[in-house]
Structures are given as C-alpha cells and as structure tokens.
Amino acid sequence: MIIGIATSVGVLALLALTAGGLLAWLNHRWPRNTSAEIDAVDALLPQTQCAQCGYPGCRPYAQALVNDAAPITLCPPGGEALVQQLSEHLGRSADEALADAPARIALIDEARCIGCLLCIQACPVDAIVGARGYMHTVLVDECTGCELCLPPCPVDCIDLLAAAVSSKP
C-alpha cells in the first residue's frame, strides 16, 4: 500500500521534473528570435522618428516594447489606434491611459513665415505644404504634433496648439 503510493508519487514527480528540465534546456536551445519580433513591432510604429517617446527613434522604442521595458502608450503620433494595435500584438492591456499630454498640432503664423522650406524638409509625415518664397501651412489631418519642425524654423513662426477636435478616425 505505502509502496504503491510512494511509487506513483515518485513516478509522477520524476515525470514532471524530466519534462521541466527538458523545457528549460529547450528554452535555452531555442532563444527568442527578438530581431524579427522587433521588426514586426517597428512596422506598426508611425516611423516619424520624433523621439517624443523618450527613445531616440521608432526602432529603439520597438526594441523596448519587445523587451517589456516601455509602456505601450508613449507614442503621440500613433495615438489611440496604435495603442490598440500594440495591445493586440503584444498581448498587453490597453487600459493604461494615453500619456496625459493632449494631442497637439503645429500652426504656422503665416504673417511671420518667410517661405524658407526648412520645416518642410524636417516634417516626417509631409504635413507641411508650401513653396520657396511663399508662406507655408500645416495640413491639420496629417500633423502628428511631433515638434520636429520647431528647431529648424529661423524665424520661430511655428507654434503647437492643442488640437481642437481630432479629425482622425
């Protein structure tokens, strides 16, 4: 009786230990293929390279996301839609509110703009239109509020305003 109980417990324990040991070895043998995972996350990010997330660009942020080192809500250009996608892709909760900064868009003070084209070159999403010598303007629907157009402007004619009502879906 006692022997029967002991063997059955022993056999099950041994089986579980063997399986666990084998899995630990396999986990070591087949490491996570992180570069392909990072590629997949990177493809979701908007590629504005605006660094508003605190990382130098989109790929470093993707890397931090795959390593679970960053919240999924740091990307203002991506907005709510990106948080949803990332939450599905990474299996993480989307409950964390989007970083409290409200959505902002750039506005060019057309009286001061000298038409130098510098902000057009800086804009990662082609949201500024204009020609040399003519004043430029911002496409409200395209602007992600990434602030990359501010430093190049020689006359400081660009301001960021709170977006009135987001026109994005």
Partner: peptide, 15 residues
C-alpha cells in the same frame, strides 16, 4: 510539455 516545446520552437523560428 510538448505544447510548451512547440511554442518555444515556433517563437524561435517564426515569431
């Protein structure tokens, strides 16, 4: 254990 091993293999080969 087999399922776990399959998952590890897949995660490594095709994330």
């Amino acid at each position: 254990a087999t399922v776990q091993a399959t998952e590890m293999l897949l995660r490594s080969i095709s994330p």
